[in-house]
Design a binder for these strands. Structure first.
Lengths: 152, 152
DNA sequence: CTCTCTGCAAAATGTTTGCACACTC
DNA sequence: GAGTGTGCAAACATTTTGCAGAGAG
């Protein structure tokens, strides 16, 4: 067993078991650089682990979101997408650029200094003005990618 | 008839008719400061216009999104929410702060200068780096509102 | 008279739940 | 054994679609 992953400890310390299904799902999420839907994960897993059903995937993802290991995104395309949260991912914190036509999602993490500063300040301002405790933020840009752009 | 609304002209000039159902739906959207789901609109309309069905509302909203009159939001709560786009709304451009517990959505449009500047620059950068044509952006902060905060 | 728009009922889609069994501690 | 975790099938909620009729130009 490879309890070496940070998320393994997190799960166990939260009183959950590190089952095969959960390991497999977390492995997929760890080794992809994409944003996967429950079904994406199911299809990836299924050839090697036909025993793991869609239900388990949904339940595991919900668990992982609750535990803060995974982030759930809604890009408005009818199905939720999941990715490891910054703390458990090799990827840096990033925002998303989404093509309205082909639905391609591009990560964008080359923030200029201003961006970090903006977020920090915005969260502070929201705290002062609305007394919200901000936990996270989603910044998404929608547009047309070069491939989908009409020629000319 | 009150063809006076900006959206009336927009619809007609795009080759669509300004029907009663469409007018009613647009009136609701014009006169609310909330983010309405298809069902919200249906329930608001129904007492006065029992003839307008949910299907029509969905079809109208889709039409309005295509035409750019309405923006569709997905806050991850299972149903899409709609509001007039800046161009057709009395409201200023704004971002959203969402309570994770009670799902309350607060608009937030008191941008400090930095925010506008950040968006302008980000869009420019995305254009240069990924050759995306950016059409709009969604900035959402998630957290816990004061009412939902555990006391103490 | 044509073409858009609409309601109804049915379908489709993504997600959740009930239940009985399997597995771990 | 007690309690967690799971698959299957069924339930669910939201949204979409087929079709035939109503209404506008």
């Amino acid at each position: 067993m490879k309890h070496c992953h940070k998320w393994g400890q997190k799960l166990v310390s939260n009183g959950f078991r590190l089952t095969v299904a959960r390991e497999v799902i977390l492995d997929i999420l760890t080794n992809t650089d994409q944003h996967l839907s429950a079904e994406d994960i199911y299809l990836t897993i299924h050839p090697h682990n036909p025993g793991i059903g869609l239900t388990t995937i949904y339940r595991t993802l919900e668990l992982l979101v609750q535990t803060g290991i995974v982030l759930k995104f809604d890009f408005g395309h009818g199905r939720a997408k999941y990715e490891l949260s910054e703390e458990y991912s090799y990827k840096k914190h990033h925002h998303h650029v989404i093509c309205k036509k082909c639905r391609r999602i591009v990560d964008y993490s080359d923030f200029f200094e201003q961006e970090q500063e903006f977020i920090r300040k915005a969260e502070e301002e929201l705290k002062n003005k609305f007394h919200f405790t901000i936990e996270n933020h989603f910044i998404q840009f929608y547009g047309i990618c070069p491939e989908c752009k009409p020629p000319g």
